[in-house]
C-alpha cells in the first residue's frame, strides 16, 4: 500500500497555525475524529510524547499511536505557517507534522510499516527542501507520490 493512497485532501492542512505542541496535535486529531474519540486519541498521543518527542529532526514530527477509537489507519498532515517548538531530537523547530493513528488490531502490522515509510519520505522531503513547495493538498499528495516512487526505484 502506498502512502499517497492513505492521504485525503481534507486532512492535509497546509496553513496550520503554530502554537503549543498540545494544541497543534489536537487540531490535527480533530481533522480525523470529533468528541470523546478525539479526546481519547489526544490523551494517548500526548502520553506518547511524554515518552520522548516524536520530532525526528530536520523540521519534521510524526506523532503516532494506536487507539480503540479508529478502525483503520488514519493520517492527518499539517504544515505550520511558521516553524514551531516540538522538543525535536535535533532541538530544531518543526514545520511538517504527520499524525498517524492505527487501530489496535492491525493485520500485517501495517501501522509500523507505514510509520517507517513516513519517516523515510519525510526525511527525503527535508533533505531536498521540498516541504514548503506544495501549495495545495493535491500538490502535496502528488509530491508524496513522487518521493515514494523515487524511493522505490532506489531500493
Amino acid at each position: 500500500m502506498n502512502l499517497a493512497s492513505l492521504l485525503s485532501k481534507d486532512r492535509i492542512i497546509l496553513s496550520l497555525k503554530p502554537g503549543k505542541k498540545e494544541k497543534v496535535i489536537e487540531d490535527l486529531v480533530y481533522a480525523i475524529k470529533k468528541g470523546t474519540d478525539a479526546e481519547l486519541i489526544v490523551s494517548t498521543l500526548l502520553k506518547r510524547e511524554e515518552l520522548g518527542s516524536t520530532g525526528i529532526g530536520k523540521g519534521i514530527a510524526i506523532p503516532h499511536c494506536r487507539s480503540l477509537a479508529v478502525d483503520k489507519l488514519e493520517i492527518a498532515v499539517g504544515r505550520t505557517t511558521k516553524p514551531m517548538k516540538f522538543n525535536a531530537i535535533d532541538k530544531k523547530p518543526v514545520s511538517l507534522i504527520f499524525l498517524i493513528i492505527a487501530p489496535p488490531q492491525d493485520p500485517g502490522n501495517q501501522y509500523l510499516i507505514t510509520l517507517g515509510k513516513i519517516v523515510q519520505i519525510a526525511k527525503v522531503m527535508a533533505k531536498k527542501k521540498l516541504i514548503s513547495k506544495p501549495n495545495t493538498p493535491d500538490e502535496f499528495i502528488t509530491l508524496i507520490n513522487q518521493v515514494e516512487k523515487d524511493l522505490k526505484k532506489r531500493n
Partner: peptide
C-alpha cells in the same frame, strides 16, 4: 474513558518494545 485510555496505553507499551519500532528510529528510555 479510563478503560479505553488504559487499553491504548497498553498498546503503546507493546509497540515501544517491538524491534520494528526501534528500527524505525523511535527510542524510548
Amino acid at each position: 474513558m479510563h478503560l479505553k485510555l488504559l487499553f491504548d496505553l497498553d498498546n503503546l507499551l507493546n509497540d515501544i518494545d517491538e524491534p520494528k519500532y526501534k528500527k524505525i528510529g523511535f527510542k524510548v528510555e
